[in-house]
Simulated scan of single mutants.
Amino acid sequence: MSKFRLSLFMVLSLLCFIGGVDSAMAQGKVKKDLFKAKSPKIQYVRPDTTILIKYDEFPDDQSDADKSIFFNPKKELSIVSEDTSELDLGEQHIVEMSEEVLVDSTWIRIAGYYAIWDTRNINPYRMDGRQLKDTVDIKLYDPRSNRNYKMPLVETPVTSHFGSRGGRWHYGTDIDLNTGDSIFAAFDGVIRINKWDGGGYGNYIVVRHYNGLETLYGHMSRPIAQVGQFVKAGDIIGLGGSTGRSSGPHLHYEVRYQGNPIDPENMYNFPGYLLKGESLTITSALFNYYNRAKSSSSGGRRTSYHTVRSGDTLSGIGKKYGVSASQIAKLNGISTRTTLKVGRKLRIR
């Protein structure tokens, strides 16, 4: 009997030891997984209303850059149910975005909001920043929650600032680069637009971020990230170039809140290669430039010129600006077969 009791004691001790290890491992797992962030979930929901509003449009080029300031609905919101495969079809949806964290092996929803999801229009939102009544505090990054930030380029020498430029308003900051340089996502988010705009942004991408901001990256030689793709701050989303309405290789970088452009230099110290702070306070005062922007852009159609470089052809120039070679030839009183002289200025529009 004593041997039996000893054996039983050893078995029970072994079971208790194993149970203790499992418990410790479980506790360790809970600690390790605590507040582990889950990628935002996109879920289609049916809205109560689909109210469309009128919009103003600048009498200028029909590029995305020129018509992005005001809400420009192409049709009534098309609502589908639980079908993320339609994210890249270019339709407008109202979607529910939800944020979750893993606590004790269970995903807990910590935040949710409704927003329009549109893969074609830069500004599909029904919001005028000048009418903003509340103060909105945007958390730009939070290392404790594994929410980081990244400058859009390895180096950020500014070549053109936000504001009036050449009789029109420039809604972003231009940063110098070499063709083929890597362009990085500024914050965690999801790709909303990957599109070509021959008369403006060229190849460009718009990223919707978890913190409520959106960033736009224009004139890429090659966009890499695809619509609906989740990206982390610092992920490569494209390569630098000079596509669209561009006089040379650079990144046109915009920051927007619900479609309203914000001067990036309110957030960034570009020479210092860093953000000015962990958060950004948004008030209606940030958008007081709107009236000046509209007046500077309402003088009628703008005349555009291109300076011929070595290797340029009319068809190549036309493709760059989204116009036909015959149109360029007609505007300049030349034939489509004319040999182009380096340094000559050609009228594009």
Rank of each mutant, 00 (worst) to 15 (best):
Y273C: 10
F270C: 00
Y253C: 06
T283A: 04
P271C: 11
L251S: 08
S279Y: 14
N269I: 01
L286T: 03
Y257L: 11
G277E: 13
R256F: 07
A285S: 14
R245D: 13
T243P: 06
M267W: 13
N288E: 15
N260V: 01
L286I: 05
H250W: 03
L286E: 03
L274M: 15
G244H: 06
L275K: 07
M267R: 10
I262W: 02
L274Y: 11
S242D: 14
E254P: 08
R256G: 06
N269G: 05
L280D: 05
G272I: 10
I262S: 01
T283R: 09
T243S: 15
L286A: 02
G240K: 03
Y253L: 11
T283C: 08
L280S: 04
S284K: 08
Y253V: 04
M267A: 12
G272V: 04
T243K: 09
L251W: 07
P264F: 01
T243Q: 11
M267N: 09
R256C: 13
I282G: 00
F270W: 13
Y273K: 15
I282L: 06
S242C: 08
G248I: 09
G259W: 02
Q258R: 12
S279P: 12
G259H: 04
D263N: 11
G277A: 15
S247H: 13
S279G: 15
H252L: 11
P271K: 08
N266Q: 14
P264V: 03
P264L: 04
Y273E: 14
Y268E: 00
E254Q: 15
Y268K: 00
T283D: 08
G272R: 13
P261L: 02
A285T: 09
V255G: 00
E265T: 13
L280P: 01
L251T: 07
L280M: 15
P249N: 06
P264C: 07
R256L: 15
Y273P: 02
V255T: 10
L275G: 02
L280W: 09
I262H: 00
P264H: 00
A285L: 07
G248Q: 09
M267Y: 13
G241S: 08
I282T: 07
Q258D: 08
P271A: 11
G272W: 07
I262Q: 00
H250G: 10
F287M: 03
D263I: 00
P249D: 02
N266P: 05
P271D: 12
N288P: 04
T283F: 06
L286F: 03
Y289F: 12
N260T: 05
L275Q: 14
E254M: 10
L275Y: 12
S279W: 10
F270G: 05
F270D: 03
R256Y: 10
I262G: 00
A285M: 06
G244N: 10
P271E: 15
F270S: 02
S284Y: 04
S279I: 06
Y253W: 15
P261N: 02
T243V: 10
G248T: 06
T243N: 08
D263C: 12
R245K: 14
R245I: 14
G272D: 11
L286Y: 04
Q258L: 15
N288D: 15
